[in-house]
Design a protein around this nucleic acid. Structure first.
Lengths: 240, 240
DNA sequence: AATCACCCGTGTGTATACAGTGATCCTATG
DNA sequence: CATAGGATCACTGTATACACACGGGTGATT
């Protein structure tokens, strides 16, 4: 594997897991030394992090890890709902015609069902997170729209950071498993409307729980507020 | 300005305008020589093009300009409609409270109105395209959602390529101006539902005209079908 | 004492040199 | 004559060296 890929994955993981806190300066020399590579591939990795919105150039200080604020979680979910609803609609339409897709989502629904009970009893949610990701992947590929899957990917990166900001009680985890099962089953049944509604329910619940969570950690004072990809925004004028 | 920025803008423009046709191999040495810069900043520019979906690495041949096919225009518009509808809804909500936003869209609506007649008589559409872009920008900033604006930016890049594939008759141009005026006015009036509906009308019409256009140029045989950002897709598994 | 100017240091942006890998073409053999 | 194997070549990926720009700090001057 390329050194730049390794650097990208490592840095991304470190940012998402909070090892590199928001506001941390990602000096090229420092980071290239830490990762045991030269500055060239590291710069490429940093560029991809900027495109992802996980880092932003700060004048004179170099790259800085952006803040994952609960403040604009609403904005993020607003977009997420629109995208996921569209995706599950299309996935359901696919599953209605394609037996293989149907089976895939039916299996997922069953697996989610079986996960509910253990989760409510405080089981380790690691496997469950992997399962969730598997559902996302199934939706992405079944929706038959690479552009859509791509946009969702960008959103999910930021969601992964928000997830760390809240504590998940066993009760809530079991609830989300039920919601996921409902979504998967609706898709398997080839019912776009139901799948869309189930998705809205799930995401609204997720947002509500995110907001009511007492664990609202405040970002470090010098953290970049939220750049989105504002760094590339000035180039918009050349789109014409 | 940085050399890598210049290279990015130039290459992007060349791809969008068709100077660099789909399937063209973007050799690092060749392009860096053409643009008068070294390989390092060029590589950064190529990386951004890949992130935009305008280029994709082809095993052994280097970077290749991706194809802008009418084939998946439907996919693109599926996503575009979802995003733009959400954006104009939020923009209308903003305009309902913010007089400055109201005025901005009211002005735009008027300008679009005045553009209808000249366009129907075959006037140069260059100014009109700039006006359209201005509306996009106004929606982006007024929707109050950087994430959404960002996703829209990614979509619009591909749309800019599709636009080149079809001829616009004066009649159709005047029609789009009318549709744009309707959207701007609905936003100015603070009417989210009307803005959303007007947007759906406009985009469905645009897609229909794109498809019925006789000018369906076939992409070069060795063009990359459509990568989306499939290059970065394998990394999705680390999102968890 | 406060402010301005100059110097120094750090860090990014760019260029170039080097190495590794993959593809293509030619040759030899079945 | 076709196919397989190897060698050559060109390209990407990485490393390093250099130039420039921005900040910070310190000193002198008002």
């Amino acid at each position: 594997m390329r050194a730049s890929d390794r650097a990208y994955r490592t840095l991304r993981e470190d940012i998402l897991q909070g090892t590199l806190e928001p506001g941390t300066v990602l000096g090229e020399i420092e980071q290239s030394a830490r990762l045991g590579i030269s500055r060239t591939p590291l710069r490429e990795a940093l560029g991809r992090l900027v495109a992802d919105g996980l880092a932003a150039p700060s004048a004179g200080r170099g790259m800085v890890v952006t803040a994952a604020s609960l403040a604009d979680a609403g904005k993020l979910f607003d977009l997420r709902i629109a995208l996921e609803v569209l995706a599950v609609r299309r996935a359901a339409e696919t599953a209605a015609d394609d037996p293989a897709a149907h089976d895939r989502f039916a299996d997922l629904a069953g697996t989610f069902d079986r996960a509910i009970s253990p989760l409510s009893q405080g089981a380790d949610p690691t496997d469950y997170y992997a399962l969730t990701q598997e559902l996302d992947l199934a939706v992405d590929s079944s929706c038959g729209n690479a552009y859509l899957a791509d946009s969702l990917r960008g959103v999910r990166v930021h969601l992964a950071r928000l997830r760390r900001l809240s504590r998940h009680s066993p009760a809530r985890l079991a609830e989300t498993a039920r919601e996921h099962a409902a979504i998967a089953r609706a898709i398997a049944d080839g019912n776009p409307e139901l799948a869309a509604a189930a998705t809205v329910v799930h995401l609204q619940q997720a947002l509500a729980h995110l907001r009511t969570d007492p664990d609202s950690t405040t970002p470090p004072p010098d953290a970049v507020t939220d750049p989105g990809r504002s760094y590339t925004a000035p180039l918009k004028e050349t789109t014409a």
